[in-house]
Nucleic acid binder design. Structure first.
Lengths: 145, 145
DNA sequence: CTCGATTAAATTGCGTGCAATTTAATCTCG
DNA sequence: CGAGATTAAATTGCACGCAATTTAATCGAG
């Protein structure tokens, strides 16, 4: 019986599987990231730091799609752990520049095998992975890295 | 230069787009759900209620992949709004049975156009949607159900 | 040069998510 | 039957995510 409520059924939605899959992947990261004593949000923040070395909170937010309300406490935590420094830009004191420390860069080597550990739990074919990445990029917006 | 750190780059990951896409979709729900005065979590909970009418917290958790720590406050909020009732099962007092009210069922009609409103912002082809749903199911279901 | 507008972070408040623990009810097995 | 194991929710504590507001610095039109 496909009635007028059919569209409301959970199983017909894309949103819910997307939401559930996202949480499921973060769950799989947990044991791996626990060894580095990083949360998932701290991990993706460090990925940006490893790649860029130094960046304003605003730019970090653009890359990660997070605002200062989320980032400020995450960055303070990472500073506390010694992986980054937080310093106002002398040219514009409104801007806070985040910079990775030597200790932060050292962490990168300890994180080298994280992607492989996650990837091997996914069991997606390369074609599926490429297809998924493309569709997700379309949902997220367009620009990207 | 694809060096040994290449795998760590944010753009090469699937996890991050998945996480970003999930948040992006929930963001798109917000204005639509605001009209119903529901959060996204409350909305998916009501979807289950509309479909099943009555269910234990445990079973609800299995469907939504959420535990009682998350569900208890959500269900209390929905009870407070008058959309559901919460009552211990007389046959087994450990079990709390959640049941949709008439007011809760009435909300269903007001939510009828929510899926269409979201779908039309996605701009995915039917093939892409089917492909995406399949891949996500694979990710979600790999070690459970 | 100045004052209102704009901008970048920080702060506040609320609602998740989830691990870990607690409480209460039920089950199991001797 | 009865004590320990198991189970279902609730509770506690922490870390997001994001809207809204606040604070401080800079910009820009007049």
């Amino acid at each position: 019986m496909d009635n007028k409520y059919e569209a409301l059924r959970l199983c017909n939605q894309l949103c819910f599987p997307l939401y559930a899959a996202s949480k499921e992947i973060i769950r799989r990261y947990k044991p791996v990231l626990d060894e580095l004593e990083l949360t998932y949000t701290q991990y993706i923040t460090m990925m940006v730091m490893w790649e860029h070395g130094s960046m304003s909170v605003k730019d970090m937010g653009k890359v990660l799609y997070l605002d200062s309300g989320t980032l400020t406490p995450v960055l303070k935590k990472l500073e506390q752990k010694g992986f980054i420094t937080r310093k106002r830009d002398s040219a514009d004191e409104r801007v806070l520049v985040v910079t990775v420390t030597d200790e932060g860069m050292a962490l990168r080597d300890r994180a080298l095998d994280v992607p492989a550990k996650i990837a091997c739990t996914l069991e997606l074919s390369p074609e599926e992975a490429i297809m998924l990445a493309g569709i997700l990029r379309k949902i997220i917006g367009e620009q990207e890295d």
